[in-house]
Design a protein around this nucleic acid. Sequence first.
DNA 1: AATACAAGTAAGTAAGCACTCACTTTGTCT
DNA 2: AGACAAAGTGAGTGCTTACTTACTTGTATT
Lengths: 217, 217
Amino acid sequence: MTKTIENNGITLRMAGDERREQILRVAIKLFSLNGFRGTTTKKIAEQSGVSEAMVFRHFATKDELYSAILDHKSCGIDNGILPWEEDSIERKAIAEKNDYNVFYNFALKAMQHHETDEDFMRLLLFSKLEDHELSEMFFEQFVSPLYEFLGSYIKERQLDGVFREIEPKIIVRSFLGMIIHHSLNNILWDKKRSLLDISNEEAAKNFTEILLNGVKK
Amino acid sequence: MTKTIENNGITLRMAGDERREQILRVAIKLFSLNGFRGTTTKKIAEQSGVSEAMVFRHFATKDELYSAILDHKSCGIDNGILPWEEDSIERKAIAEKNDYNVFYNFALKAMQHHETDEDFMRLLLFSKLEDHELSEMFFEQFVSPLYEFLGSYIKERQLDGVFREIEPKIIVRSFLGMIIHHSLNNILWDKKRSLLDISNEEAAKNFTEILLNGVKK
DNA sequence: AATACAAGTAAGTAAGCACTCACTTTGTCT
DNA sequence: AGACAAAGTGAGTGCTTACTTACTTGTATT
């Protein structure tokens, strides 16, 4: 077993697994900032503090390095359990049919997550534009189940006679549109919040109120 | 004056201006598909049916070619007049304070435009991620005035006592979120409409109804 | 202390990139 | 017909890229 040794604060040697993970972290950061094509293996090596040869010892090709991100960043999915399924507040709100809490809590958690993982949002956008597999995987494993989840709650509330008879998927799209577009504005287009500067709580509250008043009977 | 000559359907020689515009059109297409970094001057030359040297006769550098797009694609702005300002239906709806028509017509026109100019949406996304100037320009010349336009109508209707007292910009963001997120889904994430397959008219109708019920007193 | 193996590197290679230059072809105008 | 300018090219340039090879260094175990 090799051990990490420090000398004047500069790491000299690492165990294989540690180095592998470090290179991966650097790669994720650079891919999210500059895209796949805009990131060179040389830059990845430099920022990892090793020679380019080491990058290729751990990952046979640049493509393999990209693919390894798929395993590392599992789209926020914990061994098959989706984040809204294991959120106790969300589950309670659904059980109680507390519409406001269901949508407010979902929106807030989503926007908080976007805020703490800007890299992933940029990675997703790049992967779609540059035509890599990450976006497809995310769509199948995350977005599709999400439409199912929110859609079925809305259908339930329509049967309860509380929501108007609108195609549930359109309601889901409207709500996700508000949330995702807002996050995209904050992360990408208007980082300085010159158009609109509100807290996640305020945004979640307003989006939820507009949606619920919009679909309630 | 040179003239375009055809031989067996293959264009042999073009006037300078014609060739310049053709190269620009090809470049726009390729940049929108593969991004700036993903597009080579060789490919641009090939698809334009000329040698690489000709590309550099018309545009000194690849960067200059990108910048020329800014003049060509003026973001849908006709010498300073924004599309919603010259739309007669929109102006009529605003004069009559017909809320449904104001929002429905805006949403429909926007989504129709997105549909016919997918290239521009991809170009915008790429330009933001790859950090080019196009997105900045679009933001200042188009998005900012749009918030002003919709925001001031909403404020007016709040003073009329028809809309609830919500920060107008939040309402604008909610509405644009529905529209843009829907277009982005259609163009980028879900081209096959596997999640939701509705016409622009249906989408505009539903988004408008949800928003107006959401903000009306 | 010797060994053995993993971590690490310097210095490549071939292909691809943006960009150049010396040159040829073509249409127009006297 | 001959001169001239503009349209067009082939064969480069030097640089960067992903990836390789032959080699050195460090350390845990015997």
